[in-house]
């Protein structure tokens, strides 16, 4: 199928969101599930940055700022979750 990269991106984002809803509806939690949820959030946001915001074609610095931000924020959310277990 000859779809535009932005259309593939949109389909992946929709699929991951529906998977997230299924996790939420099932009331799933725990380290494993939260790790998967955070990894999928990282993938989704990087896809938006690369293919929707157009950062994949911009100079590396512009993309690195957003990627660093996403890694920092999402890993800190994971750290806070891990701390909540003790």
């Amino acid at each position: 199928m000859n779809l535009r990269p932005c259309t593939w991106t949109w389909l992946v984002l929709m699929g991951l969101t529906l998977a997230l809803l299924a996790v939420g509806k099932a009331g799933l939690g725990g380290v494993g599930i939260v790790t998967l949820v955070l990894l999928s959030t990282l993938v989704k946001t990087q896809l938006v940055a690369d293919y929707f915001m157009g950062l994949k074609r911009a100079r590396l610095l512009w993309r690195a700022i957003v990627t660093t931000y996403l890694l920092l924020v999402i890993s800190m959310i994971g750290l806070a979750y891990w701390l909540s277990l003790f």
Binding site: L13, L20, T41, I74, Y81
Partner: peptide, 14 residues
């Protein structure tokens, strides 16, 4: 859009 993609799992799911 990007910030909501983080906000949704953080507040509604995790």
């Amino acid at each position: 859009d990007l910030v909501w993609i983080i906000l949704f799992p953080l507040v509604y799911i995790i």
